[in-house]
Amino acid sequence: MTERDWWIVEAGTVGEVVGAEALYDGPARREWAERFLASPGHHLLLARAGDAEGPVGMVTGVELTHPDKGTEMFLYELGVAASHRRRGIGRGLVDALAELARANGCYGMWVAVDADNEPALATYAAAGGRTEGPPCEVPLWHFDRRP
């Protein structure tokens, strides 16, 4: 087994958040990055590698608290650069977010994933996640505030 050539850090600056935009679904905005960092319970973990200048992976998590359940971690988004897949980075990011959730007193962690997204399902299973029950529907509301 070879030594890992990547490591994980938590983003703490707007520059780090915006600098990971190649891993997001679209471009990052500074004002949204500022709001993200200022919001308690919002986390962005970045994977960095010795052979890359910018981050090669990211996971975002949001702590959600409900009056009758306590606090859980919602794994909002996971992404790994195509050039760095199949190195365990995705699983490492999920493991690191789960560790952060435990350290912050969360009772569990969950994620919504498309039933046909086999790479994501395999990553979550490898990190100890298990699917419970039949697939669920995800109703969405779209408001006119997002570009």
Results as ranks from 00 to 15, higher is better:
R86C: 01
R86I: 00
R87E: 12
R87W: 09
G88Y: 09
G88P: 04
I89H: 14
I89E: 14
G90N: 06
G90V: 07
G90D: 10
R91Y: 07
R91D: 07
G92K: 12
G92C: 12
G92S: 14
L93S: 10
L93G: 10
V94G: 01
D95L: 05
D95N: 05
D95S: 05
A96M: 08
A96F: 04
L97P: 02
L97A: 12
L97T: 05
L97G: 01
A98M: 11
A98V: 15
A98Q: 10
A98W: 00
A98Y: 00
L100P: 06
L100W: 03
L100D: 11
A101D: 03
A101F: 00
A101I: 10
R102G: 12
R102S: 11
R102D: 10
A103M: 11
A103R: 15
A103T: 13
N104K: 15
N104M: 06
N104C: 11
G105V: 05
C106F: 00
C106E: 04
C106N: 06
Y107V: 13
Y107A: 11
G108N: 12
M109W: 01
M109E: 09
M109I: 14
W110V: 07
W110C: 04
V111S: 08
V111F: 00
V111Y: 00
V111M: 09
V111T: 03
V111C: 12
V111R: 04
V111L: 12
A112L: 11
A112M: 10
A112G: 10
V113T: 14
D114N: 07
A115T: 15
D116M: 13
D116Y: 14
D116G: 15
N117V: 08
N117C: 10
N117H: 13
E118P: 00
E118W: 03
P119D: 01
P119M: 02
A120I: 10
L121H: 08
L121T: 13
L121N: 06
A122P: 02
A122N: 07
T123A: 10
T123E: 03
Y124K: 13
Y124R: 11
Y124T: 15
Y124W: 08
Y124M: 14
Y124H: 09
A125S: 15
A126N: 06
A127Y: 03
A127N: 04
G129E: 02
R130Q: 09
R130E: 07
R130W: 03
R130N: 03
R130F: 03
T131F: 09
T131E: 10
T131P: 02
T131L: 06
T131D: 03
E132M: 05
E132T: 07
G133S: 08
P134W: 11
P134K: 12
P134Y: 07
P134C: 00
P135E: 03
P135R: 04
C136M: 06
E137A: 06
E137T: 06
E137Y: 01
V138T: 12
V138L: 15
L140K: 07
